[in-house]
Design a protein around this nucleic acid. Structure first.
Lengths: 188, 188
DNA sequence: AACTCCATGTAACATGTTACATGATTCG
DNA sequence: CGAATCATGTAACATGTTACATGGAGTT
């Protein structure tokens, strides 16, 4: 698939260093794509070789120097062309669902704990997204923002992330309820 | 990550051939993991070499023979062990979100069309899931089913898939509304 | 003194994708 | 008669993950 284009899209919001991008992709501000830092460094290298981004070293006194990447005109063109091509269907890889699918009816303990952890993670992500949202809106209400702002893309993808985490919390809650009820009843 | 375990979990529901599994993974009955047929054939091969599944050839007269795979005792053990280990956070790869993130404010046409297509795909998947659900419930209501049936895992993962597609439809609808409104207003 | 954050990378390995190949049968 | 379905695979290539390495600055 195409981390390359996800990187170009991220850089369309403004220049950034590999490290900064890594945080976004890892922590999940870019909630629609995941990647490890190593992948980013490698692909940024390639994007630069292909002339889609340009790098420049920013010297820092109290911290290690960093390489800041920026879209080139070619990069912008490629991003535009990518936007016009049909999108592949989304791909999911969710280990927890695999575990749940095959959960042993006798021992749901581990799964219940995992579901609780998942709710915790989702709440954290949601809190992060909500903060971001406040920062984007900065006082205005949603309708106003959606009419006025230049770029609505980042807001709409953020909403996708929020809805996803909200759904997760609701869903995982019913999973816990279901499994604990069955444990209590124990009418096997 | 681990397609291997997704395969073991799928086979925990009963034996199947590579082709049958491929359909499930491709079409998305296994909505929590995606894989191409080639990957399945390769990984089934390895699982067999590792003794986690066993294969036997079923001769067919009017169709090509098929190899039907079944979990071994070792496979079941591995699946149980896997269930007890902590799960990795879910990974998403969504090209449409990448495109939307960087959508050109001037030309949202392609994105609006893509959003409409996505709604269509989600509706189809949802219809498939709903059918599956009817088949699972077979007359009973949900509460009854969740108390009585041996295996609740497949039902709960199916619910995750349904909720995900429902969310997609709602979200993509607001995306279309937002982008068309801005296009109409054209107050840039 | 130990730990986390900043910042970047190499190398080895594991997974996932695409293109190609085969061949009978059933459906329209 | 052409397309779709059943059924399995090989080979080449692209992506993604894990382990390891470095080193100063700030924090507990």
């Amino acid at each position: 698939m195409s981390l390359r284009h996800a990187l170009l899209a991220a850089l369309a919001q403004g220049e950034a260093s590999g490290y900064e991008l890594a945080k976004r992709f890892d922590v999940g501000v870019a909630n629609f794509w995941s990647a490890t830092p190593q992948q980013l460094y490698r692909d940024l290298e390639r994007l630069e070789q292909d002339g889609l981004v340009s790098a420049r070293v920013v010297e820092q006194t109290r911290r290690p120097n960093k390489r800041v990447f920026e879209l080139t005109a070619e990069g912008r063109d490629e991003l535009r062309a990518f936007g016009a091509r049909p999108a592949k269907p989304p791909a999911m890889r969710d280990e927890f669902l695999v575990k749940l699918q095959a959960v042993d009816p006798g021992e749901p303990g581990a799964i219940i704990a995992a579901a609780a952890e998942r709710i915790g993670r989702s709440r954290e992500k949601l809190a992060g997204y909500d903060q971001m949202r406040e920062r984007m809106l900065s006082g205005r209400d949603e309708d106003e923002y959606l009419r006025e702002s230049e770029q609505v893309g980042p807001y709409l993808t953020l909403m996708a992330g929020r809805m996803y985490e909200q759904m997760n919390i609701r869903w995982a809650t019913t999973v816990i309820e279901t499994l604990t009820n069955r444990q209590a009843t124990a009418s096997g």
